[in-house]
Amino acid sequence: MLAHVSKSYVTPPNYVVRDFSLSIADREFFCLIGASGCGKSTVIKLMAGLQAPSTGTVVRPERIGMVFQSFALLPWLTVERNVAFAVRMQGFDRDKVRATTERHLRMVHLEDFAERYPRELSGGQRQRVGIARALAIEPEVLLMDEPFSALDPVMTDELHADVLRIWEHTKTTVVMVSHHFEEAVTLADRIGVMKDGTLAEIVDVKLPRPRREGDPAFTSTVRKLRGFLEGSHAAPTVGPQPE
């Protein structure tokens, strides 16, 4: 939860995030979208504790997993060791590390790639390792910072399906940052639209899954989001705020 959070990197302050407040419901898939430079990556870094807010408070759970746009895998460790390393750092015992690593590699269909090194994998496979690593530590919240931006469209679609499958299986709370409206509508329960460092709107996405880009309801939601961002939508609709 973020309450009236602001963030400036310079003095005197020039806020990249201003009076930002947000609560994420348990097991929710929340997506934050906005144009480049609107502060959404700063928000996710504040959530992860990578940066401290200039003002306001951030309440975060004890264990957070994170998936990065650049994958952030250690090149000298195999796929298996990359996942196991993160799990072991949480203080789990060796048996649990082994079992958890094995289970999450299976979950992302990379059990046969366990002995490969990251440079031997495709971008999509590397991101699967990143997802497995983030989930293997059994986080209370999974943060995803534009996780598909470095991938081609075909790979991105595959990973969308995988992420949804894994999320529906694990029911982990997910907060994802994106600048693609279609991606946000495909994945999220709720979408926050950021503009100039503030949360301009929050939209409930009540469409049944799997969602298809050609569906009229899908297209209408995307158009509504685009309107919020461009400031041309006259009567914004905001979904109910969770408790």
Partner: peptide, 26 residues
């Protein structure tokens, strides 16, 4: 050392001497 690696180290609790030994030195 990429910023994302440093961020990942922080998020996954690889900090202090552990960060030096397992991330920086390699």
């Amino acid at each position: 050392i990429p910023d994302d690696i440093k961020s990942a180290a922080f998020v996954f609790r690889v900090r202090g001497w552990r960060r030096f030994w397992f991330i920086t030195l390699p």
